[in-house]
Amino acid sequence: MSKTIAGPEIERLIQLLSKLPGLGPRSARRAALHLVKRREQILRPLGDAMAEAAEKVRICSNCGNIDTRDPCTICCDPARDQTTVIVVEDVSDLWALERAKALNAAYHVLGGVLSPLEGVGPDDLTIRRLVERVAEGTIRELVIAVNATVEGQTTAHYIIDQLTDFDVSVTRLAHGVPVGGELDYLDEGTLSAAMRSRTKI
């Protein structure tokens, strides 16, 4: 049984930080110590920013992006090509493509990939909403931009099967995305090249 070395408030901070991706208990302790040491410069503003985000940030009911408005800024942007929709696994992938300025299109965030081993089925993702958007008849091209993993490709094939009755062109990322690679870790040049070289499925 580990001995408590700090007050319950700091222990709770460490416990919550350790739940973040990439932060284990040791990294969480270092982060908590840094935050407490720089209370006025970082800790208080961070707390305010998190409280504001919890209050104002919402999920777009149309595409699944996160924003402070619903529909989100991308869905409401008249300068976007709303006839082309890029399908991504997560919001982090959307951000990666936006940083690359690869294609001035709309998006659809699936919220993950199909994974029977982890109990993730079609109803756990936003595939039904994607099919509804295609059924509305304004989308001409879907760019499947899921990660090049087994689960990602399985998800892509499932989506294609759901769209056989619709007159929509379905393309996917081509050159530049390595097998097993994840979009969020690729550089902007690689993403741009992959988007330009997309091919029909």
Rank of each mutant, 00 (worst) to 15 (best):
P122K: 09
V87L: 14
C63I: 09
C75Y: 01
S27E: 01
L20S: 06
I59Q: 07
G121V: 04
L94E: 01
S115T: 09
L114C: 13
T83P: 01
G111A: 02
V91G: 00
R129C: 02
Q15L: 05
N65A: 14
W95D: 11
A53C: 06
A79I: 00
R80W: 08
K56G: 00
R128H: 07
K56T: 13
E40D: 15
D123I: 09
P116D: 09
L103Y: 06
E11K: 10
L17M: 04
R12C: 11
R58A: 05
R26I: 12
R29H: 07
E11T: 12
T83M: 10
V85T: 15
T83K: 15
G47C: 14
P45C: 04
A100K: 13
K56E: 04
V113F: 04
R69T: 03
I74Y: 00
V87G: 13
D77L: 04
D70N: 15
S61P: 02
V57Q: 05
R80G: 07
D67C: 05
D123V: 12
D93H: 11
A79L: 13
P45S: 02
C60W: 01
D123K: 15
G119A: 01
T84W: 07
D81E: 14
R129N: 03
G121H: 09
E55A: 15
Q82F: 03
S27A: 14
E118F: 01
L35H: 06
D67M: 05
T126M: 09
K101N: 14
P78N: 05
N65R: 12
R12H: 13
S115V: 11
